[in-house]
């Protein structure tokens, strides 16, 4: 099976440890991962802000880049949601039946990381070790658009050493919403305030999610409050192993096992 990594522009630029962790986990499981360098952005920023026309070339670039793969994996629920739910709409706006056909071929093969592991590769224990107190925020697009359900939690429960605490009101939005966090900053902050309260109530040391955009938002509020809670993408917890922990090596410094 040819697996391509769609790192997402946001992770590629701001959180490179996350796509690296995806590579680490998949290679540890014996798979080869390819990274088509032509990839850039799924167009979510533009579509969700109303700039659908600007997203047309991005959708075209995405379908061209990933056309030849059996599975495309992205460590972001919202980017996968954009591809699967909205690329067809952008193709409609473009009035391009060729693009619509290309989207129809590629989009169903795009998986969020936990979906790829559990549904496509059939694993929940990826051999991870992470001896920390962790709580998990499901993120809206993973939960309600992709309906990943408890897949991320099943993966986390299989991690050795983990102390997994349930997050109260977990399904409630953190208030990020892309440009919503700027356009409606006051409401957004009111929402993240409650999310932070719930996170702190768990006493967790690490807040985990499948989307770094939500984690940047909650993490930004936690950091401002010097809350002593760090944020970590699901992939980075799944990439952590016992030898790495024993060497006191930070997760972010772990090189993929060849």
């Amino acid at each position: 099976m040819r697996i391509a990594l769609f790192a997402t522009c946001f992770n590629d630029t701001m959180f490179p440890d996350t796509p690296r962790a995806v590579v680490t986990v998949l290679e540890r499981l014996g798979h080869t991962v390819e990274f088509p360098v032509e990839q850039t952005c799924c167009g979510q920023l533009h579509v969700n802000t109303g700039y659908q026309r600007e997203a047309i070339p991005l959708v075209r670039l995405f379908t061209d880049t990933f056309a030849g793969y059996d599975a495309i994996v992205a460590p972001s629920g919202s980017c996968v949601g954009m591809v699967r739910e909205y690329h067809s709409r952008v193709a409609e706006v473009a009035g391009d039946p060729g693009l619509a056909a290309a989207v129809a071929r590629v989009a169903p093969r795009v998986y969020e990381f936990s979906e790829l592991l559990v549904d496509v590769l059939g694993v929940t224990d990826v051999g991870a070790y992470f001896p920390h107190r962790v709580t998990y925020h499901p993120t809206c697009h993973s939960l309600r658009m992709l309906k990943v359900g408890d897949r991320p939690l099943r993966l986390l429960r299989a991690v050795r050493g983990i102390d997994l605490i349930e997050l109260p009101a977990a399904a409630e939005c953190c208030g990020f919403g892309g440009t919503f966090a700027l356009k409606n900053a006051d409401v957004s902050v009111a929402m993240v305030g409650d999310k932070v309260r719930h996170v702190r109530d768990t006493g967790a040391e690490v807040l985990c999610a499948g989307d770094n955009s939500c984690l940047m938002h909650i993490g930004g509020a936690l950091s401002r409050l010097r809350a002593g809670v760090r944020t970590l993408h699901l992939a980075e917890i799944l990439a952590a192993t016992e030898p790495a922990a024993a060497d006191h090596v930070q997760v972010s410094d772990v090189e993929p096992i060849r």
């Binding site: 590629d12 490179p16 440890d17 900053a185 938002h217 090189e255």
Partner: peptide
């Protein structure tokens, strides 16, 4: 307009090396 963000939330610092730069360097 990013002050709308940092009024109440910290922002992350861009890393020295992007994912794709790491990929090219190591692969």
């Amino acid at each position: 307009p990013f002050s709308k963000w940092t009024d109440a939330r910290d922002a992350p610092v861009p890393p020295a090396e992007s994912f794709r730069a790491w990929w090219r360097r190591t692969r």
